[in-house]
Deep mutational scan, measured.
Amino acid sequence: MQIFVKTATGKTITLEVEPSDTIENVKAKIQDKEGIPPDQQRLAFAGKQLEDGRTLSDYNIQKESTLHLALR
C-alpha cells in the first residue's frame, strides 16, 4: 500500500509499505529515499509519536495515510 510522509520542510515522500511493516522498517525506507538516518527520525500520526517496534497496523495506519516526520 502507499503512504505519504510529510517532512518538516513541507516535502511529501511517497512510500510503498505493508500494514505489517514496523515503524523501524518505514524509517529505513525513508533513509533509502532521503538519506536521513533512522535514529534522527521521529514519526507521528494523528498526533501520536510512533514507536520503532510497533507496526503500521498497530496504529491503524491505512493506505494513503500521511505520517509526519520530524528530525531530532
Rank of each mutant, 00 (worst) to 15 (best):
Met1Pro: 02
Gln2Met: 13
Gln2Ser: 05
Gln2Asp: 11
Gln2Leu: 15
Gln2Arg: 05
Gln2Val: 15
Ile3Phe: 01
Ile3Asn: 00
Phe4Pro: 01
Lys6Gln: 14
Thr9Gln: 08
Gly10Tyr: 05
Gly10Lys: 03
Gly10Ile: 04
Thr12Ile: 15
Thr12Gln: 06
Ile13Cys: 02
Ile13Thr: 05
Ile13Ser: 02
Leu15Ala: 02
Leu15Pro: 00
Glu18His: 12
Glu18Val: 13
Pro19Gln: 07
Pro19Gly: 09
Ser20Ala: 12
Asp21Asn: 11
Thr22Val: 08
Ile23Lys: 01
Glu24Leu: 13
Asn25Asp: 08
Asn25Val: 11
Asn25Met: 04
Asn25Leu: 15
Val26Trp: 00
Lys27Thr: 02
Lys27Trp: 02
Ala28Glu: 07
Ala28Met: 12
Ala28His: 06
Ala28Val: 10
Lys29Asn: 05
Ile30Pro: 00
Ile30Glu: 00
Gln31Trp: 13
Asp32His: 14
Lys33Trp: 08
Pro37Asn: 09
Pro38Leu: 15
Asp39Gln: 08
Asp39Ala: 10
Asp39Met: 08
Gln40Asp: 15
Gln41Tyr: 14
Gln41Gly: 03
Arg42Cys: 04
Arg42Gly: 15
Leu43Thr: 01
Leu43Trp: 02
Leu43Cys: 01
Leu43Lys: 00
Ala44Val: 05
Ala44Asn: 11
Ala44Leu: 09
Ala44Thr: 09
Ala44Gly: 11
Phe45Pro: 00
Ala46Tyr: 14
Lys48Asn: 13
Lys48Tyr: 15
Leu50Trp: 01
Glu51Arg: 07
Asp52Trp: 05
Gly53Phe: 12
Gly53Lys: 11
Gly53Trp: 11
Arg54Pro: 06
Arg54Thr: 11
Thr55Phe: 12
Leu56Val: 05
Ser57Ile: 06
Ser57Gln: 11
Ser57Asp: 12
Ser57Val: 08
Ser57His: 15
Asp58Phe: 11
Tyr59Ser: 03
Ile61Asp: 00
Gln62Ile: 10
Gln62Tyr: 14
Lys63Thr: 09
Lys63Ser: 13
Lys63Leu: 11
Lys63Trp: 10
Glu64Lys: 06
Ser65Ile: 09
Ser65Thr: 09
Ser65Phe: 07
His68Gln: 15
Leu69Arg: 01
Leu69Ala: 02
Ala70Val: 11
Ala70Thr: 05
Leu71Ala: 10
